[in-house]
Design a protein around this nucleic acid. Sequence first.
RNA 1: GCGGGCGUGGUGAAACUGGUAGACGCGCUGGACUCAAAAUCCAGUUCCGAAAGGAGUGUCGGUUCGAUUCCGACCGCCCGCACCA
Length: 875
Amino acid sequence: MAIERYNARVAERKWQAAWNGASVFATRNDDPRPKYYVLEMFPYPSGRIHMGHVRNYTMGDVVARYKRARGFSVLHPMGWDAFGLPAENAAIQNKVHPAKWTYENIATMRAQLKSMGLSLDWDREVATCSPDYYRHQQKLFIDFHNAGLVYRRKSKVNWDPVDHTVLANEQVIDGRGWRSGAVVEQRELEQWNFRITAYSEDLLTALDTLDRWPDKVRLMQRNWIGKSEGLKVRFEFESRPPSNEATIEIFTTRPDTLFGASFLALSPDHPIAVAEAAKDPALAQFRDRCRQMGTSAAVLETAEKEGYDTGLTVKHPFIAGKTLRVFVANFILMDYGTGAIFGCPAHDQRDLDFARKYGLEVTPVVLPTGADPASFDVGDVAYTDDGTLYHSDFLDGLTIDAAKQEVARRMESHQVDGAPQAARQVNYRLRDWLISRQRYWGCPIPMIHCAECGVVPVPVEDLPVKLPDDATFDRPGNPLAYHPTWKHVACPSCGKAATRETDTMDTFVDSSWYFARFTDPWNEGLPTTRSAVDSWLPVTQYIGGIEHAILHLLYSRFFIRAMKATGHVAIDEPFAGLFTQGMVVHETYKDASGHWQAPADVLIEDIGGERRARLKADGAPLTIGSIEKMSKSKKNVVDPDEIIANWGADTARWFMLSDSPPDRDVIWTEAGVEGAHRFVQRVWRLVGETAELISGATAPALAAKLSPTAGALRKAVHKTLAAVEDDIERLAFNRAVARIYELVNTVARLLVETNVAADATLKGALGEAFDVLLQLIQPMMPHLAEECWATLGRHGMLAQTHWPAYDPALIVDDEITLPVQVNGRKRGEVTVARAAGEAEVKAAALALDAVRMALDGKSPKKVIVVPQRIINVVA
RNA sequence: GCGGGCGUGGUGAAACUGGUAGACGCGCUGGACUCAAAAUCCAGUUCCGAAAGGAGUGUCGGUUCGAUUCCGACCGCCCGCACCA
């Protein structure tokens, strides 16, 4: 009987409709079963989904379907990170309103995601650009404001001259805007900030509780927060400067090296530097030069340390009569520590470079262990390792740590100009989160500026502050600011004419709480419903790209803390489990004139074992380039729509899971897709060939005494079941796939080699094998699994079926085969009873020909028997 | 510069806490079926060697009965941060 090929196009549409019709994936908040919240990072509606989405959402869907089958009430929602610049750029370039552009993209991408057969609860869909969503974000903003977590301040900002907007520090990469790539300029503007630094310490220490996060991400966040403990030290001026300060305060993490101090350096933006510059034109000039210097990594690396001697001097705190010159230096940052340092050239490379350039004294004060104090000297490399203090008076002989303590102790109790000379200080690299954006397509900041009352929050009953529909995009700058009427309102406090805040929020705000909104997106009155949000959060398993290791994940952690402080949630952390998946990469192809060519237009041939590429259209030879992340610029993209149309969603899903470990990059290849599709057809064919044979033969036959073949099959089936469970729990999808291949190979071989019809117990075992196999495949290839399930005449939909339990008795063997090594090299193997004692195992091993030959009549020095594992004979 | 990670066949990769290196996939080779092709099925496929045997997880050393796994040095690649005092 010929079996028709599996028609993915027809079957996938059919089952998607069937799941939808039965609302299989709609999740109820009042479901009493244990909850499991699996979430993939929601997409930006850029136009079409790409292969990265396919990989991300396939992984999440495997987890969702598996956990559902395991009896959990699974929340698996989807939404749209829908505000942002591309919509506004489209408005400028194509004269289409950002809302229209965005919602059309959403419609396209929703259809694409649905064609993948994802088990999503679409009833909970949210789009961050909808007033139904952002009204609640405005409420959160006001609550944060009232709790002191939002403030406005004039600050030097990173200004993107192409996008005409302010960027957060995190959005400046190598001195360029993260989206536009334009060199960022410095400007002073009144900006709204979230006080993320209020949680610096908590965000840092709580990383230790996130034991289901990758170490790498936790380390990145730890470094980003950048805690350092040190001392703020006040140096007394020898002579008061014209600005009339008595002291300069510096920050140091190395107070132990104070006896090696040879100068002080101030940031060009330090108040004293500014004040001095007002009277010293040369210093003013120097400051201008510093400001013009770029901030890109390339510039900084090559930039020389430069300083300007202010002529001011300060007293050394411990060495009577010693004075230090005060420089303004280009390498001192104003926004870290106090914007001033003391330089100890012997033990800091930058200070050393500076000292050598300006002929300043270099006195080593830390002696490496074992070095000779008489001869130890620092050349052009500062000594920054451990050692013992010397040349340091009362610190001599102390360790670095002890010296730090001693200096702090003495200075804390010593008064200078009416205050302690030093105070212990913890510094963080983390800065507050600047959220003001001068753009239209974002969540309006719900504040009103009144000449009388100052800055007043919009009353909650007036929310949302909606974006005007009739904005225009024909000139640069913020469309909200030059809209003729939108910003003019009455002050909520005094009723007089006032203006709205025209800044909108950074889109990272939108994505900082969407996972909470999913728990009850129907609540019109409040951002969250406490009973829902507290029972669903934290997200059990969050899956997304490593590129969000800092920004999105740190902001979300801050947001949950702020939402807790304002009574919107009870939890401490948003994501209990985090998984960062690798990228989808592809070969690149270039034609003779250096233009990139798309994989769809390329023909790959194997000529004499060498892969060659030609253009499909005219056969022109192409160069095969390196494997890189799929990107439009290199044209090495594969369109998910085409793959799904040609091969089916299940083939795409299976390939995404099978080839590489999920946290590593996966190389998309045509051959790999063909292989995946071959497997789809193979399963279908096996089911088709066997359906009639095993119909009606299941459990009853198993009760009888099994034939050896049937018994062996059952063992294989249950072992695979146990192993795949374990693999999916660890998100080791590639291993699960390999085990499923093995099981299918076993079944296929059995069908070829055995007359199944003659063995009733084997029919039963085979029936069970297919039931289990389809269940194992279901999370990964749900349509195929359903179609096969129906073909076998099983009842109901697989998507609603409970996961089978493996029989623990079947996954252990009565007899085991142990490798036998001689001197650590395998020489043979012995098969013994599982329960065999050490003596018996040893005897069996020594009886092996290979072992006897190796021993050559002598008795072994030692025989190591590792139970259930291995025997090693030491000759 | 600082911090972290990774180097396994032709190739994507397996090998849980030290215990049979290369499971599974791709590719390739041979065979069956076919007038032929596609599809499918069977067999083989780390390297050297006809075989017996030997070598082998970036390189060199160490610990161990036993090392892809642990330790040290080096080489190469990747990622994050970066004048953070």
